[in-house]
Simulated assay, not measured.
Amino acid sequence: MKKLYKYLFVSRISLSNNLVYVENFIVRNFFLVFIIYIMLMLWQNIYGQKGDVIAGLSLRQMIWYLIVTEIITLSRSDVFNEVSVDVKNGNIAYMLNKPYSYVFYCFSNSLGEIGVKLITNATIGLIIGVLYVGPLIEFKLTQLPFVVLSILLGICINFFIHICLSLTSFWVEENSAFYWIYSKLVFTLGGMLIPIEMFPEWIERLARRLPFAYITYGPARLVVDFSLSNFASVLAFQLGYLLIFIGLSTFIYRKGVRALNVNGG
């Protein structure tokens, strides 16, 4: 219980610090309005040519789907850069003897930033969704706890993948290419740009087995087309991948610490 309290204390401090800058988050993330507007114009043309339903979704559902994927993607912390810098400049050496796990410290410290971003992005997303295409009449309030859980799990998976990539700094001096490749995989195979049903069948089958789809596609699809069976399937994959990347991040960190060669600080 004492160990858990330490991380909760770190999260509380992080939340307090980030709440000071909540106005900055709102202003900085307001370009979500323009992203969704461009998507609306694009998909209006596509639906005008293809019909009223694409990939099982109406235009209204498609725009809400894209809003949710953008909210999840934008509600991330800067842990990749922070950890990479800690490793590269040697600051991580001063954290080795601290009474906490570095990986879970980073997670706790990021929760404040993630929480504020998620709330501000969700608020902006709800407003522009209602203004652009109207409320999602298919969505029921009873589905909200399931959807929120799935969104949070998607954000957590994203975090632990980011920290896995950042910890490659122990061996690779310039690891930003890994982050770039990963972000493009989320953009495509993760269904952030278009639902994976629109891919060729073999790519769709592959995407459904990879973790990227359970960061953005899975939660967003539940928002616009919810069923308990789909939720159970998405939840199983999310929990499985979350455990995998938590374990992988702690493994990479321990291996990196053993081979640590401090070049700075």
Rank of each mutant, 00 (worst) to 15 (best):
G154R: 00
P145I: 10
F139Q: 11
L118P: 01
A220C: 04
N97R: 09
A220Y: 02
E138M: 07
N18V: 05
L193D: 03
G264M: 06
G90E: 02
F159G: 00
F107L: 11
M62I: 00
I252V: 15
Y5I: 15
R258W: 03
D78V: 10
T142G: 11
F104S: 06
L111C: 09
V22P: 00
N18C: 08
I215S: 10
M1C: 07
P135H: 10
E82R: 10
N261H: 12
G112V: 01
I161W: 01
T168S: 13
K140R: 14
N158S: 11
V116Y: 02
F199T: 04
G264R: 06
L222Q: 02
F212Y: 13
L189Y: 00
P195N: 04
L239S: 11
Q61E: 14
L167T: 02
M62R: 04
L126I: 14
R221A: 13
E201S: 14
L96S: 05
I46Y: 06
L59Q: 00
T69F: 03
D86T: 08
T216M: 10
E70G: 02
N89P: 00
V148K: 01
V257Y: 01
L248E: 02
Q238C: 08
V186Q: 09
K50S: 12
F104M: 09
G154K: 00
S176C: 04
L118T: 11
F31H: 11
V224H: 02
T73D: 12
R60F: 01
R28G: 08
I252S: 03
T188C: 08
W202L: 14
L144M: 13
I128Q: 05
V53G: 06
L126E: 00
L96Y: 08
F170D: 05
A220E: 06
Q44R: 12
R208I: 12
L149S: 07
P200W: 07
L239T: 07
I181L: 09
Y179R: 14
G265A: 06
T168E: 03
P219L: 09
N175E: 04
T168N: 03
N29T: 05
S176E: 12
V234Q: 04
E23I: 15
N263M: 10
G115R: 02
N121S: 13
W43I: 06
Q61P: 01
K6N: 14
P135T: 11
Y102A: 08
L243G: 14
G190M: 04
V224Y: 05
V234P: 01
L59T: 05
Q238N: 05
S14Y: 00
I181W: 03
L149R: 04
N261M: 10
T168V: 05
L206G: 08
I92A: 03
L42I: 15
L111W: 03
C156E: 09
L152V: 13
W202D: 12
S11N: 06
V10Q: 06
I155V: 11
G190P: 01
L126F: 12
F107T: 03
F25D: 05
I119G: 02
S183C: 04
G218E: 09
V10R: 03
K88M: 07
I252E: 01
L19I: 07
C106R: 15
W64I: 02
K3T: 13
R208G: 06
A236K: 15
G90R: 02
T142H: 07
G134R: 01
R205Y: 11
E174N: 12
E82P: 00
T123G: 13
